[in-house]
Design a protein around this nucleic acid. Sequence first.
DNA 1: CTATTTGCAAACCCTTTGCAAAAAT
DNA 2: ATTTTTGCAAAGGGTTTGCAAATAG
Lengths: 136, 136
Amino acid sequence: MDSISHLRENHLKVTPQRMSILKILDRHTHPSIDELYEEIKKDFPSISLATVYKNLNILKDTGMVFEINTHMGKPKLDVYMHPHAHILCKKCGAVFDVDFTDNLYAYQKELEKKIDGKIIKFDVSAIVDFCENCKQ
Amino acid sequence: MDSISHLRENHLKVTPQRMSILKILDRHTHPSIDELYEEIKKDFPSISLATVYKNLNILKDTGMVFEINTHMGKPKLDVYMHPHAHILCKKCGAVFDVDFTDNLYAYQKELEKKIDGKIIKFDVSAIVDFCENCKQ
DNA sequence: CTATTTGCAAACCCTTTGCAAAAAT
DNA sequence: ATTTTTGCAAAGGGTTTGCAAATAG
């Protein structure tokens, strides 16, 4: 579903600042909050950091946006897309997306059976010493 | 490995305050930092919150202790034990441990093959609307 | 026209830091 | 004897809040 429909469904107004946040997060570069802020300022030089925080909180409440705990440095931001896991590089701090596979879906099913309930979000991160780029 | 050996290996002194933190985390009740602080004060009424923070940072650096991002409310604390995943209850905020199974190990192997590297920590959390206790 | 959002500044945490005294090795 | 740790108080930094003006629906 596109961002605008998602906002409308949640009775949220479509403001340029809000759309800019979503557009940047849709790149899936997983910025930290201050990196996002710097990026938005390119389009909205006068945007307030408070506006960014307020929007992030609103978008988190709808489940559209969430934070990734990297266990090192600042948390990174992500927007919802089809189920995916994250690879976190300990060296450079980058976050990479990886798809779920049958094995992971099978574990999810196993868990749901075990707890007799539905998993509404499955958060999977693998921390590695070096990523592709850091291996050089 | 027991806590004392782990501390010695990392050239950390075995202080009563530090041991109290580890003893409490070993219960795997996943307290937040302030819940941990309240708990420690039962044993050390005069302990400083700064001491708790300093110890948590030191213990995180060794990989012994880490934070769980619950995506709601404050982060929770955990100590290392054999590979396990977490179930996070959206209703009450509680964190429960669940074991890895073959399916999850298989996904881990798949990922390691894909990235041609070793996963040093595999962080898996399932968020549910209600836990056992909240279903009532 | 009404309700939400923005931007600013101030307030409010939570976390870290500096330092002297105490404790561990 | 040396080094780390503790506890206190102060500083720091990220996040939230209140409010008037601007904007979206």
